[in-house]
Nucleic acid binder design. Structure first.
Lengths: 333, 333
DNA sequence: GTGAAAGCGCTAACAC
DNA sequence: GTGTTAGCGCTTTCAC
């Protein structure tokens, strides 16, 4: 970062003032075409690279957005970030990607860092931990830095949210299963402190209740692949299998399928299984998994667009958005 | 970014100069303890947040590193980024994560952006495309911005590289298979323009040659799940199955296993299968996959440490590092 | 111990 | 059309 060619050097080389160089390089129409050409040629030849830091300082605009995700190893979040990145880039903004490691405290510190580095807006994908009233909300509001929550939400917090309508998605799934003639439908649940998960359970209950069927909740220790495997092992031991196992995510569905198959229980013939999210795993399973797709691209694009709107118009909350989900029917049920 | 509390405001509030506030807040021992306390209290009370952009400008240090990965959806790269992030953070640096979408041109543009934003060093995970002599190398060198390649490399380029010893890893795997008594061992290959992939094929050949066994290369159109499925379907059609299918990555191994099982060919009894990388998929398969683990954590940490060294000591290339791999034996062979 | 002053590299009025 | 000037918010000599 030392001894770079700067505006002044180019100016001297061309025998004009730094101001003219600045205007020329920014294609200001006021500058004479010939001068512009000369300046640009010189800048190019001298290997001039503008210093964005200096530029940001004077413009009071960093041209950067921040996004915080709990975990980049989770395909779901990774897809979100990937889409968001594309969209933000195409709007000539930069995206600062931060990882909270599912730690609310780390999330808070990241917000601080983002503020210090002058991002113009922040998209927060909540951790899967309870977080009643993060103080950073106040900080961001006070500084008038637009922000919103995406993919999931902290229920107690009043703020713009953009996420899937997970309850409806699960309702659609269970309704479909019932229409197909199934009635012994169990739901693999887990820690209910996470909003989206509770929403999925609610969707299941609603559909079952409406059909007059009995709710059958199976509690997994963890809501992941291993948790599902263990839960099903127990069902098998106790000889309490159900005709359908509805899972709140695809990883669990995969765990259920693999465990059943390893016990020579055929899917979908003896037991049907469904997932949620439509991540890559759901196609890669030995039996492709019927699932509910969250339109993560739309969520990402909507988040970015909304944030840009908030930045431009100083508009605050424009009302939560719940993005429609889509039933993906494959062979596991 | 407007109307924030700044150093000057805190100075006025405390009746001292901005210089003193700056020193106090940075815990300079020259400042009187009592003054320091007063200043800190005021800064805190007034909600002062330092402006990193201004600070970077004057210090000529951005306190940021940049990393470029081809694709954040790939678990492998995601793990790398995740680890790198942790390590960089703990060194009080920020990490700018950029995604090249496997596009050399985009990679070049990102390097430009990183330079403009004054990162102090860059870690590049190459795209899977040929890239004989990216010009950005010269740019970075000329500006004395330390950089290195990690995970994979562009063969034609002279630069610091940190990656797994993939050839040795595959050699170990095939040697193990041979020792186990297998002899009809086929290798699923694909596009050989990628260095790491060619290295794996080389490791296979070396081990087979040494044992005096016949090389059996099967060419897949793409080196992913679907490519592997198709390739195996063809083998089955032509009735050309082999006793062992060695795959250059876990996704392909999974494709092979699922395809075989869907044709009621048992793994590992009738056909054994091996993977490479030890990503999550390899445990999640119906038959846990025997694979070669790339120690991605070590690669990430080594990359960061080396880059920090280069930044600190203006040291250039310190010789390539090839990280040892590890054979992970599971049930697929 | 503290303050005054200069300046990091750039932009944006306002002159000319 | 182009140059002059005054900062953006902070750090860092160097006086006092």
């Amino acid at each position: 970062m030392a001894n770079r060619v700067k505006l002044e050097d180019v100016a001297k080389e061309c025998g004009v003032s730094p101001a003219t160089v600045s205007l020329a390089l920014n294609d200001n129409p006021l500058v004479n075409v010939e001068t512009k050409r000369r300046v640009k040629e010189a800048a190019d030849r001298m290997g001039y690279i503008p210093n964005e830091i200096a530029r940001s300082l004077v413009k009071k605009k960093s041209q950067q957005l921040g996004v915080i995700v709990p975990d980049i190893l989770n395909c779901f979040y990774a897809t979100f970030v990937s889409e968001l990145n594309r969209f933000v880039q195409s709007n000539h903004y930069g995206l600062t990607i931060s990882i909270s490691d599912n730690n609310p405290d780390r999330e808070r510190r990241i917000v601080d860092e983002l503020i210090r580095s002058n991002v113009e807006g922040v998209i927060i994908v909540p951790t899967n931990e309870q977080n009643t009233a993060p103080l950073y909300i106040n900080k961001l509001s006070k500084l008038k830095i637009p922000f919103l929550f995406a993919v999931d939400k902290y229920e107690e917090i009043e703020a713009q949210v953009i996420m899937s309508d997970c309850e409806q998605g699960m309702y659609d799934m269970v309704t479909y299963l019932i229409a197909k003639g199934y009635s012994d439908i169990a739901f693999l649940s887990g820690d209910t402190s996470v909003f989206t998960l509770r929403a999925r359970a609610d969707g299941y209950r609603k559909a079952m209740d409406e059909a007059g069927l009995e709710n059958k909740m199976i509690r997994a220790e963890t809501i992941d692949y291993n948790g599902a495997c263990k839960a099903i092992e127990q069902c098998i031991e106790k000889n309490q299998l159900h005709r359908v196992f509805v899972c709140p995510n695809d990883m669990m569905a995969l765990g259920v399928i693999n465990t059943l198959r390893n016990h020579n229980i055929s899917v979908p013939e003896q037991c049907a299984v469904t997932g949620y999210d439509n991540v890559m795993f759901s196609t890669i399973s030995t039996v492709p998994i019927t699932t509910v797709e969250q339109d993560i691209c739309t969520i990402a694009q909507n988040s970015a667009r909304t944030l840009f709107d908030m930045i431009g118009e100083q508009r605050e909350n424009i009302g939560d958005k719940y993005i429609k989900t889509k039933l993906i029917i494959r062979e596991s049920c």
